[in-house]
Structures are given as C-alpha cells and as structure tokens.
C-alpha cells in the first residue's frame, strides 16, 4: 500500500439487538480497523441501529459465484455475498 492510495474498503456488519446475528449493512473506506469501527458507528448507527459492529476488509471476503446461466433460473439459497437482501422493500415511503 502506498501513502497516496485510496483508503481500503471495509464491509460493515451491525448487530442491532443482543441475541441477533450481525448483519451486513454496507461498506466504507478507512485506513485501519479502529478507524473503520469508529466510522461505521457514525455512518451506520446514527439512528441507534446497532449495539455491536464488525468490520472486515472487503478484499478478505470470498464470495460464492453464481453459475452463469443457472443463477438466472434458480435464485437459490446459496446466493450469498457482499450485499444480502435483508431489507423489506416498503410499499411506498410516506410523503408528508
């Protein structure tokens, strides 16, 4: 790593309540793990979304590869990687 480089990318996992799994919420850039945790607190828990934070260097995550064509027909159970769908998509966000 050179000093001129972009700060590395970290994947962020937040535990929202005791007893629940840490869930992937997104990513951010930070120079090291300590700062990644601090930044994750500010970026991803501004509305008290979490009680515990994991940070993982993005390049340390290995993802399963969907079979090229198969994946289109079988959005299967093992389709897990960087950004899992854990949000319910709302019917419509209230306007005013």
């Amino acid at each position: 790593m050179s000093e001129k480089d972009n700060w590395p990318l970290w994947e962020i996992f937040i535990q929202s309540k005791p007893g629940l799994n840490h869930k992937h919420v997104g990513s951010l850039h930070a120079p090291d793990a300590e700062m990644a945790i601090e930044n994750a607190r500010d970026v991803y828990t501004r509305r008290s979304e979490g009680i515990s934070i994991w940070v993982v260097p993005a390049n340390a995550i290995s993802a399963s590869s969907p079979e090229d064509e198969g994946s289109f027909y079988e959005p299967s159970n093992d389709k897990v990687y960087r950004h899992p769908t854990f949000y319910e998509i709302p019917d419509g966000v209230k306007y005013l």
């Binding site: 700060w7 951010l28 850039h29 700062m35 930044n39 500010d42 970026v43 501004r46």
Partner: peptide, 11 residues
C-alpha cells in the same frame, strides 16, 4: 478531508 470524517465531525 474524506466523507467518513465529515460525518464524524458533524456527529
């Protein structure tokens, strides 16, 4: 100096 720090200082 970077978006993450902008958010931290505002906090």
């Amino acid at each position: 100096p970077i978006l993450e720090e902008d958010i931290a200082m505002t906090n």
